[in-house]
């Protein structure tokens, strides 16, 4: 097996590639969740995390459960929850902003014990 064949084989898309894509997305989501100073960006990162999970679900549905595609049903559920979470996140953000007119996470330290 020549080296080119090996490379081609590696790059031939399968379930693994989708899982790796999901993992990359998940890691970016974690990164954004932790390092952002803007609360809105934190909310966006959470959405990206949920998208990463959705990719995993749909990929598994495609590769191992093509007849029932239950993974896709779960993806739908997750989207609904994500929508609810986004709405609540906005509401929390607004009430927070009303108490303290800032979106800087570095200034939200009232939980300090």
């Amino acid at each position: 097996m020549s080296i080119i064949e090996v490379i081609l084989k590696i790059f031939n898309v399968g379930l693994t590639h989708y899982l790796i894509l999901g993992t990359i997305l998940f890691c970016i989501g974690i990164l954004g969740l932790i390092i952002s100073r803007n609360v809105i960006r934190v909310l966006m990162s959470i959405e990206i995390l949920l998208c990463a999970v959705n990719i995993n679900f749909v990929a598994f549905a495609n590769y191992s459960d093509i007849n029932n595609i239950q993974g896709q049903v779960f993806a739908i559920f997750i989207m609904a929850v994500a929508a609810a979470e986004a709405a609540l996140g906005l509401a929390i953000l607004l009430s927070l902003y009303r108490n303290k007119p800032t979106v800087d996470t570095e200034e939200m330290k009232e939980l300090k014990g």
Partner: peptide, 17 residues
Amino acid sequence: IFVLLNADFVAIAQIII
């Protein structure tokens, strides 16, 4: 990506939601 995974309904829902 969802379209590539044969998940057309989820893809549309993704765009809408």
